[in-house]
Amino acid sequence: MPTAPTVGECQVWRLPMGSGHWGGFDVLDQDERERHGRFLRAADRDRYQAAHVGVRLLLGHYLGVPPAELRFSRHCRHCGAGHGKPVVEWPATTLDFSLTHSGDWVGLAVAAEPVGLDVQELAEGTEVAALSSTVLAPAELRWWAGQPAETARTAFFGYWARKEALLKATGHGLAVPMSTITLTPPDVPAQLVEWSGDRPLDGPVRLYDLDAGPGYMAAVAVLTTEPVRITQAEFSGTTLSGEPRPAG
């Protein structure tokens, strides 16, 4: 069975979609069940189920409490409002987590330091040229404009995944424009070059690209000064062998 990450470790789990992997909804609270029921498309319901049942099962296992008894908070650590990144409110823990989904990829990152995870599907319908000035900083735009067409699209989504992961780790979200963040190009190891946003960066950050398979770009960010060991695996309701699964 998996063990909780310690300082210097980050676990990235892919959560498979489909009710057969999770065996029911009894671990979700009333608000989560209502939100799940409001999705009109089956694929959206499956993504929500995978993310929210998966995170409860895994964190409940790590923290030694029934998954349904976990409580989460969205208090922003910068301003105190209720729009922040979800964190475990009870029981008390130093573990942090980040959820993401794109296409049929649903992911969960867990670490002992603040963490952010993002996956981007290389969707053909996305007009990357129209979005480039919103996502890319001036130096990145200059680099990106010089790339051949066959690699420019992949590079754009690589930048996007890295920046989303970073902003999830810091908890800033949309409050800090991505165009104020300069990173190394996606063809070299991920690293923060410049943070010029009005809001200060929480501390040193480590950025890592992930292998999310064909058609996807992914990255994880951890707020720490030291290198982080990243592991990737699949997690579902059957991963916790020997523990009861949610009732169907």
Rank of each mutant, 00 (worst) to 15 (best):
A92F: 00
H75L: 14
T100C: 15
G84N: 09
T93G: 00
K85R: 15
P91I: 00
G107W: 13
H75D: 13
G80Q: 04
A68I: 02
H83K: 02
A112F: 03
A109Q: 14
G80K: 03
E69T: 15
R71P: 01
E69F: 09
V88M: 09
H83F: 00
R77Y: 03
T93E: 01
P86T: 05
T100N: 13
W90R: 07
K85V: 11
G107R: 05
G84V: 04
L108Y: 10
L70K: 09
R74L: 02
A92L: 00
V88A: 09
A112R: 05
G82Q: 05
F72G: 03
L95G: 00
P86S: 05
V110Q: 08
H101V: 14
F97T: 07
L99H: 12
A92Q: 11
S102A: 15
G107F: 12
S102H: 13
R71M: 08
D96H: 15
S73Y: 09
H75C: 11
G82F: 01
H75T: 13
C76W: 09
A112C: 03
A81Y: 01
R74T: 11
W90Q: 09
S73F: 05
A81L: 04
L95I: 04
C79Y: 06
G84H: 06
F97G: 05
V87D: 13
G84E: 06
A111V: 07
H83A: 01
W105E: 12
V110T: 03
A112L: 05
R77Q: 13
E69P: 04
T100D: 07
L70P: 05
S98C: 11
S98M: 11
H83Y: 00
E69Q: 15
S98N: 14
L95S: 01
T93S: 04
F72M: 06
A109W: 13
W90F: 05
C79T: 04
C76Q: 09
R77F: 05
A68M: 06
W105N: 08
P86E: 12
G107Q: 08
A111M: 05
D96W: 07
G107A: 12
P91C: 00
D96T: 07
E89I: 03
R74K: 12
V106F: 10
L70S: 13
C79D: 07
